[in-house]
Amino acid sequence: MADEPRDPRENIEEAERFEQYLDALISGERPSPDHVASGDEAEMARTAAELAAASSVAQTGPQGADPDPAFVQQLRLRMRQADQAIASLKVPPPVRSVPAGDAFTGPTYLSRVRISRRALLQGGAGAAVGLAAGALGLAALRPPPAQRPLGGDVPLVPGEGFWQTVTTLADVPPGSAVRFSTASFAGYVVNDGGQIRALSSVCTHMGCTLYFRPDWKDLRCPCHGASFDLKGQLANGRDTWKQTGGYRGDATAYPVSLPALVRPAVKVENGQIYVWTAQV
């Protein structure tokens, strides 16, 4: 830091702003980084915080640094609830039998139909194909980097993978999703504000098949209620709740963090949407 200037008019602006930080800190309120404008000031803020804490204890004794008993009690309760919510996630989902005459019986190769929510909830072959993606590993879902096509010719490597057409651009307007399944995995093609993306339909918790909710624009898990956004990220976790105070119609936050959904490689060419799929 520079040598001390003698003129009290120097530093007046910074001092005025920094006082807003100090005032909050010293009165025991939550201070804000908004009033701290530089790395040097951050060092000063840290010193001030440590000084404030040490002087509380020096003045009032150990209770100066002790937590409010109401806070301790409340946190204990919150933790117990979270712990119970997490324990309930370890229960495997009940297995439902598939009614006869279901549209999903038998192996599926290519399907470009938009699936009704009710049909999705019946699970069946869709879930089995989704789980196959895990068995084959991620290699099946991405073209090998050296061979990733940049548009134009598609280099096919026998025994590896290829671009399979799954739907058309016209079928996926913004904010919508189309279910597809290839020989090796199932997922959704989504249009996230103009950006076309493919997302695995396998929930990253226990492998249940996600269903698309058009009114909420998320991919929902019927087993334990996880919701994923159109980027494939968990959308109804504790962080979201902390920021927004809730999520859609949910009663509580999803209690654990989950990995993002796997994203198969996708391309759009001449109005056709393709996903990279393993050669089976």
């Binding site: 309120e29 201070p31 440590e50 804490a53 640094a65 937590p67 409010d68 301790v72 946190l75 979270a82």
Partner: peptide, 28 residues
């Protein structure tokens, strides 16, 4: 843990938030 955190952030609201963060993470 609360005392450890309070000594380094200097105010109760932030110390409470960070303590909660630590134990909620512990639950998971």
């Amino acid at each position: 843990i609360y005392r450890f955190i309070y000594a380094r952030v200097g105010n109760a609201p932030d110390a409470e938030d960070l303590t909660a963060q630590v134990f909620m993470r512990a639950v998971e």
